Simulated assay, not measured.
Amino acid sequence: MAPNARLDHRNPLVIDTHELGRRPGALQRLTREIDAPRDLGIQGVIGVPEGTPLELDLRLESVLEGVLVTGTARATAEGECVRCLEPVGLELEADFQEMFSYPDADDRGRVIAEPGDDAEDDEDRLFIEDGLIDLEPVLRDA
Rank of each mutant, 00 (worst) to 15 (best):
M1S: 12
M1D: 04
M1K: 10
A5S: 14
A5P: 00
H9P: 13
H9Q: 09
N11A: 11
L13N: 01
I15F: 05
H18I: 01
R23M: 06
R23K: 14
A26S: 15
L27F: 12
L30Y: 03
T31S: 07
R32V: 00
R32E: 01
E33C: 15
E33N: 14
I34H: 08
I34C: 10
P37F: 12
P37H: 12
P37Q: 08
P37C: 04
G44F: 00
G47A: 10
P49Q: 09
P49W: 08
E50H: 14
T52E: 14
R59S: 07
E61G: 08
S62P: 04
E65Q: 15
G66P: 10
L68A: 05
G71C: 05
T72F: 01
R74Y: 00
R74K: 14
A75V: 09
A77M: 06
G79K: 09
E80S: 15
C81V: 06
V82G: 03
V82K: 12
L85N: 06
L85F: 12
L85K: 11
G89F: 11
G89E: 13
A94M: 08
Q97I: 01
E98V: 04
D106S: 10
D107C: 01
A113F: 04
A113D: 15
G116A: 04
A119G: 03
E120V: 13
E120H: 08
E123A: 15
D124E: 14
D124V: 04
L126K: 10
F127T: 02
D130C: 06
D134A: 08
D134Q: 07
R140P: 03
D141C: 02
A142F: 09
